[in-house]
């Protein structure tokens, strides 16, 4: 609290200034500069060029696809996250530890491998490849494949936020609601949800950022068909490889705004959670 006067905990001045300078350098050169540089390069040729680049048919189609993929995969991820957190945080059952590990598994799998899995499953030479071809269903190099890859990548986000939160919360309030005659849904909507809303929102925000920004996994399954199966990150890659720097950074700037909004919301939610927690 009164750090400045606690003689024993004070680092020597030169250490303090040295470390602070290093930290500011890292933050400045490694975090702030790239952030600023994205917008600088996006607007390098002025507003007009920027507007043109984000309204090309390919760009618009990439934006729409990204929104579509997120709109499909986000609700599924949220429902999964909430139900998995409910089962894990509120009940004891054999294999609970294994289930928790499985939920975290996608974190330790390379995105490229994640994409590969779905190619092996649904691709022309995959398990269901022939059957899918026979029935004329396209998953790989089409939107469903992108959705599957996104679901794989985003599956840990919501559950990971909610499990510790719900464990810390305990189940007394829910039991109290039940004892007063509330049904399961009333209990969930009136007691559980209001208690976990900040954590849930936090998970949703992180999940959404990842769903819209995923590159590696989506890159493997999409087939890179401009105007058709290119999401926004893939569009960034495509325009960059065509040496269209303004186009690439213009598209990147949209994703960067998403990232910055995510960070702002995240900080705000963390602040909210701190406020809601009793001080001791």
């Amino acid at each position: 609290m009164h750090n400045s006067s606690k003689a024993a905990l004070q680092d020597p001045t030169w250490v303090r200034y040295g470390l602070m300078t290093l930290a500011l350098l890292v933050i400045g050169l490694f975090l702030c500069l790239p952030l600023a540089s994205i917008f600088f390069q996006a607007f390098a040729k002025g507003w007009q060029a920027y507007a043109e680049q984000i309204s090309t048919p390919d760009a618009v189609s990439a934006i729409c696809l990204t929104l579509l993929v997120s709109a499909i995969s986000l609700p599924l991820s949220v429902v999964f996250g909430v139900s998995a957190a409910w089962a894990i945080a509120r009940f004891d059952f054999p294999g609970k530890g294994l289930l928790t590990t499985l939920i975290d598994l996608p974190f330790s799998v390379s995105p490229v491998t994640a994409g590969l899995l779905f190619v092996l499953l649904f691709g022309a030479h995959g398990w269901f490849g022939e059957w899918l071809q026979a029935h004329d269903i396209k998953i790989i190099f089409a939107v469903p494949g992108i959705v599957f890859a996104t679901l794989f990548i985003t599956c840990p986000f919501v559950a990971r936020e909610l499990i510790p939160l719900m464990q810390e919360m305990g189940s007394e309030e829910e039991e109290a609601a039940l004892s007063m005659g509330a049904g399961p849904w009333t209990m969930f909507w009136r007691v559980t949800l209001p208690n976990i809303k900040w954590g849930l929102l936090y998970g949703v925000v992180l999940c959404n950022a990842r769903a819209m920004g995923e590159f590696g996994a989506v890159s493997v399954v999409s087939g890179h068909i401009a105007g058709l199966t290119n999401t926004l990150p893939l569009h960034v890659e495509a325009t960059y490889n065509e040496y269209n720097a303004v186009g690439a950074f213009a598209a990147a700037s949209l994703l960067t705004v998403l990232a910055v909004v995510t960070l702002v919301v995240k900080s705000y939610l963390e602040w909210q959670q701190q406020l809601n927690r009793p001080h001791n």
Binding site: I38, P111, G213, V236, F249, A252, T262, L263
Partner: peptide, 24 residues
């Protein structure tokens, strides 16, 4: 603000990080 910025690499799509680092 600094604390929030630490998470930028988490939030920034990797392709965006890739092109901006490459250009810098």
């Amino acid at each position: 603000i600094f604390d929030a910025l630490i998470d930028l690499p988490f939030a920034l799509p990797t392709a965006v990080a890739g092109i901006v680092l490459a250009s810098l």
